[in-house]
């Protein structure tokens, strides 16, 4: 399987663990520590990821601001975004492809990622 995922998460432990468990399942994972870095990496990636895993509350450029940038870019706006947040109400309000509530359950994460990347 050669499926790329972009993980945008400010908390280092969460970011690294998401990368670890997704890599163990055979995904290729690129990480970014905030919305600004995420948007930059997304624009620069030669082959675009099949989905983005996005935290909402982050320093500098937060998840909402990332979504603004991504949705206004025709090159990027078709990439599905999974919001990974403790605030599911706020997450649903931005109308993402899916919402994963923190603390994340492995089965829920893998099932959602698998479904959306298929």
């Amino acid at each position: 399987m050669d499926t790329q995922i972009l993980v945008i998460e400010d908390d280092e432990a969460v970011r690294q663990t998401l990368k670890d468990v997704l890599e163990l399942q055979g995904y290729q994972v690129t990480t970014a520590m905030n919305g600004g870095e995420g948007l930059q990496k997304l624009k620069e990636m030669a082959s675009k990821p099949c989905l983005v895993l996005l935290d909402l509350m982050m320093p500098n450029v937060n998840g909402w601001q990332f979504l603004d940038g991504q949705r206004n870019d025709p090159q990027l706006n078709n990439i599905p975004v999974i919001i990974c947040s403790a605030y599911t109400e706020s997450a649903k309000a931005v109308n993402p492809a899916a919402v994963i509530e923190k603390p994340v359950q492995l089965q829920h994460l893998l099932w959602t990622v698998k479904t959306l990347s298929a």
């Binding site: 908390d11 969460v14 690294q16 663990t17 923190k102 603390p103 994340v104 359950q105 994460l109």
Partner: peptide, 8 residues
């Protein structure tokens, strides 16, 4: 927040 990495 720390529960997510622990869980996973």
């Amino acid at each position: 927040t720390p529960i997510t990495p622990l869980n996973l």
